[in-house]
Write a protein that binds this DNA or RNA. Structure first.
Length: 477
DNA sequence: TGAAATGTTGGGGCG
DNA sequence: ACGCCCCAACATTTC
């Protein structure tokens, strides 16, 4: 036993040093901190553009944090198993540690790798760092996976509390003989010509430090009013931690315990924990139903008469539907790689119900444009809004984009910010510009059909069409 | 984590 | 004073 042989800590969606059990378990041994860019993994969803931008910056942050502790981040590209083999051969490492991923393709890959490593006498250890509860530990009385959120959440709250986060190791010394590494730049994760990442740079600073700063800021203020104001896209009332959380820059256990300690008694704190449990529920669903990202969870939706309309899809994607709250959300997404959750529901309902386009089209667009694109959350949320998911909103629950706008963006500040061509409309018309009299439009500098589109569908007609499509599906049953 | 249609109730104007 | 109508305001049901 070469007791001072290095351990490979294989970083994946756990780009942090705090509360990182795979890293901690390697303590006292030289650590090869390895990240593998594996773009050919079978069955995996390749990261979209916004995710690649975030990944680049998050890796840069992790590399700096490791360097400050005497370590080094090794970057390698290729098939995960082949890269691990190569690094083991180069370094004489005797073990590989990682924190578990829960996507179907990753589970299959990691299972294969673990078996192959152990067959050769390499110690392979995996840990939970991404979820509050392992998906297989939360079950109904009958031992079945939950299909409804509320009892699932109740079971989570009744389960043994997630362990407290572990501190980051003070030092992460590398091996005596360094291992070769790619340069981050050579991976070309950042966009170039056109450089569309301006808005992302203005909005986000990936990495563990900013993740914790956002958590602190949230628990110092907005959490107090979170119960009501989390629905207000015109107010900075949410944590905005989704991107950091997806890449594992901060652990859900840290969020759980920090929230309980600093806001646990408040209704805001309780509701924030509930949102964390929605994230758990999504991962639980993906774990137990691996085709969640592709297929209707409720198979009775398989015959739904979806439309095919490339022009409508393009209008939705680029925020040119003529419905201000929808367009504001889609433009916020395009610019910043993020959208307020209330608005995600509104634009999702609009795509699936007003335009009758398949939820997978929205899922694919979000996958490419969101900095927090997450297979479980994205799939579960799209199926939820489409009405075909587990514990989903009933299909006939059609959001009225005008009323939703007026309810949750009452002064129109959110619309004015993201749809500046409507900024000078009065509040009672900013969510329904087509109802404005011509002189009012002229005074606001709006020329419908020129500076801003007329609605691409009429709300009342579109609603009736969606309900008719749903009724046809029922009858076909 | 809706919206719209439909039903019910009760105050006030008015003959 | 009374009945009638109108119509908010709220509640229920339907999609």
């Amino acid at each position: 036993m070469t007791s001072n042989a290095p351990i490979i800590v294989w970083f994946r969606q756990d780009l942090r040093l705090t509360d990182n059990p795979a890293l901690r378990a390697a303590a006292e041994r030289p650590v090869i901190a390895l990240y593998i860019l594996d773009d050919g993994s079978a069955g995996a969803w390749a990261p979209g553009g916004a995710s690649r931008w975030w990944l680049h910056n998050s890796l840069a942050s992790l590399a700096a944090d490791l360097a400050a502790r005497g370590g080094r981040l090794v970057l390698r590209r290729g098939d995960s198993a082949a890269v691990l083999d190569a690094v083991i051969a180069e370094s004489g490492a005797t073990g590989v540690h990682w924190n578990r991923c829960y996507e179907p393709a990753a589970i299959a890959r990691d299972k294969r790798i673990k078996a192959a490593l152990e067959a050769r006498g390499i110690v392979a250890k995996s840990f939970n760092a991404a979820l509050l509860f392992e998906p297989w530990t939360i079950t109904t009385q009958a031992g079945q996976p939950f299909k409804v959120y509320s009892p699932f959440a109740r079971a989570c709250r009744a389960a043994p509390e997630p362990p407290r986060p572990e501190p980051a190791p003070a030092r992460v010394p590398g091996p005596a003989r360094p291992v070769a590494s790619d340069t981050l730049e050579s991976w070309r994760l950042l966009p170039s010509r056109p450089d569309w990442a301006v808005g992302l740079r203005e909005t986000w600073r990936p990495g563990e430090r900013d993740a914790r700063a956002r958590l602190d800021r949230f628990l110092d203020g907005p959490v107090a009013t979170y119960k009501d104001e989390r629905n207000r896209p015109d107010i900075e009332a949410t944590s905005r931690l989704s991107g950091h959380l997806h890449f594992g820059e901060i652990s859900p256990r840290e969020l759980w315990h920090a929230t309980r300690a600093r806001a646990g008694e408040s209704t805001g704190g309780t509701h924030f924990i509930s949102e964390l449990l929605w994230r758990e529920f999504s991962h639980h669903l993906l774990f137990h139903w691996p085709d969640l990202p592709e297929r209707n969870w409720r198979r009775d939706f398989d015959d739904f008469p979806w439309a095919e309309d490339a022009a409508a899809l393009a209008a939705w994607q680029r925020g040119r539907t003529g419905y201000p709250i929808v367009d504001a959300g889609m433009r916020e997404l395009w610019r910043t790689g993020w959208m307020h959750n209330r608005v995600r529901m509104i634009v999702g309902s609009f795509l699936v119900k007003h335009l009758l386009l398949p939820w997978q089209a929205g899922e694919a667009w979000f996958w490419d444009t969101l900095v927090d694109a997450d297979l479980a959350n994205n799939a579960a949320s799209w199926q939820w809004i489409a009405g075909c998911g587990a514990d989903a909103a009933p299909y006939f629950r059609v959001f009225n984009p005008i009323l939703q706008g007026e309810k949750f963006d009452p002064a129109g500040a959110y619309v004015r910010r993201w749809v500046p061509e409507l900024a000078r409309l009065p509040a009672d018309l900013v969510h329904r510009p087509w109802e404005a009299a011509e002189p009012v439009l002229a005074a606001a500098g709006v020329a419908l059909g020129r500076t801003y589109p007329r609605p691409i569908v009429d709300h009342g007609k579109a609603r009736a069409r969606a309900l008719a499509a749903f009724a046809a599906l029922r009858r076909a049953d």
